[in-house]
């Protein structure tokens, strides 16, 4: 069972307290009703599904109940870091050399 650090509670808690909520940094268009079919498709259906680093939304549902973002490696399952919802995508990942 993974340990996940909640950036609001500021501690590592077991995976069971959390729920994954899909890919992060996909903003809902402000004028969504006017989106073209292509743009809506990109927003709603298309996800990156990478092998390696993924940016995800998680919720500390059985804890503080806050949504936050996490950087995880889909190969090792390891969490690289977590940060609060609304914060920008980290420019540099801890331990990343590339």
């Amino acid at each position: 069972m993974l340990l996940i650090r909640c950036p609001y509670c500021e501690e590592e808690r077991p995976e069971l307290e959390f729920r994954n909520a899909g890919e992060a940094h996909i903003a809902r268009p402000t004028n969504i009703a006017a989106e073209s079919d292509d743009d809506f498709e990109k927003f709603f259906f298309i996800r990156s599904n990478p092998k390696g680093v993924i940016y995800e939304r998680w919720r500390h549902i059985h804890g503080c109940a806050r949504f936050f973002n996490a950087v995880r490696d889909t190969v090792t399952d390891k969490f690289v870091m977590t940060y609060k919802a609304g914060e920008p995508k980290p420019a540099k990942l801890p331990g990343a050399s590339k």
């Binding site: 109940a65 806050r66 919802a85």
Partner: peptide
Amino acid sequence: MHHMEDYLQTEFP
């Protein structure tokens, strides 16, 4: 509740 919280916290904060 989860759905409402999601939008309140992340899309309409």
